[in-house]
Design a protein around this nucleic acid. Structure first.
Lengths: 140, 140
DNA sequence: TTCTTGACTTGGACTGTGTCCATCGTAGGA
DNA sequence: TCCTACGATGGACACAGTCCAAGTCAAGAA
């Protein structure tokens, strides 16, 4: 069983087959799936799993800090299982591919007090945009 | 007439009453409205304006680089008329208020070549999150 | 000025994403 | 093994955004 499931049990989660499958789908590949993609992959193993359950489970994983929600465009959110290691995202504007990246610098520290307008700033998201090698190629 | 309308005319835009009203709504306050908010404000001046037209016009303004699309959460996109001056956003996680901010540092330069994976990186969005003064206040 | 035409607008249907809720099922403790 | 509160279900619903066929009109031509 994955460390993640163990941590969840430790936090009082009731481990059901549905939750197990959702967690395993996320744990399997470190790609950035939409909720629908998680649902269809989960349904391969557990055909009767409902959309509502997948949405609920993803929402809970996000609020526990185990999974990161990535809002790339106006479309579906994507879920990043690599939430425990700080990182940013590089997104292809053409095909939507997402890569995790680790920039130098400290964006939080870059925001001077005079630019905080009294806010309690708790986090920062950095999203780089561009074209991936395939999409940048002329008639690729 | 606004500079923006003049620029648009220069780019071959047909200036219709609908487009004029949408541009005026955006030009008026430098806040970050959703498409629906733009539509309802536009409808105060031009009651019969349709949602489709507002969406079309906003989309065109974005692709011309005159307006910036801001995707704050999974909900509706917001439209920022301040697209010609580079800036970033500070968002209250509680009430959704958005402020334009101008951090020090150069996030684009912070992404080393080894972290670009062959991408042609063209831009970067930085979103700071936290609580605004009203929402941070205990029982405010 | 009037005419012409193709770009623009309209409204309603449609899609995709996500939420809600009443009901049913079951994990895990007693 | 039994109980029960927590979780799952699925279908209705809400919201954001897109699409399309038909009607309208801005602006250049005559």
């Amino acid at each position: 069983m994955s460390d993640l499931l163990e941590r969840l049990r430790g936090r009082g989660w009731r481990i059901t087959s549905q939750r197990r499958v959702v967690v395993e789908v996320l744990d399997g590949d470190h790609v950035h799936l939409t909720a629908e993609e998680v649902h269809s992959r989960a349904a391969l193993r557990l055909p009767e799993i409902s959309r509502a359950t997948v949405y609920n489970t993803l929402g809970e994983l996000v609020s526990l800090g185990e999974v990161m929600e990535v809002c790339t465009d106006g479309r579906a959110k994507r879920y990043d299982p690599n939430a425990r290691q700080p990182h940013q995202h590089l997104i292809c504007s053409e095909c939507g591919t997402i890569r995790d990246v680790h920039p130098a610098g400290d964006p939080l520290g870059d925001l001077p007090a005079t630019e905080r307008f009294g806010f309690t700033v708790s986090g920062v998201e950095v999203t780089y945009r561009g074209l991936c090698p395939s999409c940048a190629r002329p008639l690729g």
